[in-house]
Nucleic acid binder design. Structure first.
Lengths: 201, 201
DNA sequence: CCCAGATGTAAACAGTGCTTACTTAAAGCC
DNA sequence: GGCTTTAAGTAAGCACTGTTTACATCTGGG
């Protein structure tokens, strides 16, 4: 074997993932708006045209990034709420609901660009209505069922679930600006959760 | 009549407003993402450089457009709820609250691009925290006070107001996609309003 | 009347998305 | 192994963008 340089010339399958990973990182850092395909190809040591073997156009890439965002959010939910529900006291159920809210809001604040992509046109491009992408909605549903199991709220229905989600989503969106770094955001989340529970009682 | 075409050479003061108006229209139609300064200058029959006499850069223009969006939203509120509050029955107060919600959500759906701009980085650039830009928050505050005057809810405070706003904002954002054109959106808004009132009882 | 300052122009620079025609590596098959 | 087909990457180019520069022009106030 003469040439001991097997994989430096061609990424061979890994380029697609590398591009997405790079763009996801950029989105998390909030620089996605100004990210160019040329710059990522430059950064990955590849010609600009190579990217187009893997993505129809820039929008296609951004849609993939948005999809990865939902995956990342799902991972956070799993990490933050690993246990199956209906264990412990009713306080534990409430705490898990609050934890869910904090996870959601936390994601929006420290991955603002990704968050924006997910709930902008690119994110919706991959989603039929909503509630389709794995989690978020399902996690919320599960948490509400748990709250009901402890008698903290009435049995919920899609409308109520959507209300709960809206409240958290609005909070996340209105708070997610890097500017409004109020440190009492945890208090706000807790209060908001209490109000949601009150509404669903 | 002799129309407003005195000098074809120089816009002389009107260019700035013309550019903003054009961009606002584009935002309402959802084409703001792809709008270029060159295209608007072309459309207005002016050289590309002329725009830079009035705006530092593209971001400055977009921030102005976002600000105009808040003005437009305020106008809608005024048009939809012209009366001073605490008149009629408690049902009227509830109806006004629902009308406020519908106005908010309606704005997000039929001016989606503008909406996105307003609550994105450009919109926040002009706002200290939130609650600063004239209305939205004040309108909500007024409506909640009215609901309290009729004994429908407890006296509200900033946290509760923010909760109500979050719920409506989340609804508006999750619904605003042109895709999710559910025809029962009015029902959803009404139910959501009822749940908010229940939470604040 | 005339000129300072505001406004608009043309041309240029660097950077972008994307396409085209071309080369090269990898994998499949006998 | 050799051979071909195909996937992956390259280089060059087109039309466009944001922005700056040096220059022209209009307009109102002394």
């Amino acid at each position: 074997m003469i040439t001991t340089k097997p994989s430096d010339q061609h990424h061979h399958g890994s380029l697609r993932d590398s591009v997405i990973a790079f763009a996801v990182r950029a989105a998390q850092e909030g620089t996605i708006e100004t990210l160019s395909l040329r710059s990522v190809s430059r950064e990955l040591g590849v010609s600009s045209g190579a990217v187009y073997r893997h993505f129809k156009d820039k929008d296609a890439l951004l849609s993939e990034v948005a999809a990865k965002g939902f995956d990342a959010l799902a991972e956070r939910f799993e990490a933050a709420m690993p246990f199956e529900s209906v264990i412990g006291t009713s306080d534990d159920a409430t705490a898990r609901f609050v934890a869910l809210a904090k996870t959601y809001v936390g994601f929006s604040t420290d991955s603002y660009g990704l968050w924006r992509l997910m709930f902008g046109p690119h994110g919706r491009a991959s989603l039929p209505p909503w509630a389709d992408r794995p989690s978020t909605y399902e996690w919320l549903e599960k948490s509400l069922m748990e709250l009901h199991a402890f008698g903290l709220i009435a049995p919920s229905d899609p409308a109520k679930q959507f209300f709960a989600w809206s409240s958290l989503h609005g909070l996340a969106d209105l708070d997610s600006s890097p500017a409004s770094r109020s440190r009492s955001v945890d208090d706000m989340i807790e209060r908001q959760c209490a109000l949601i529970i009150a509404a669903l009682k």
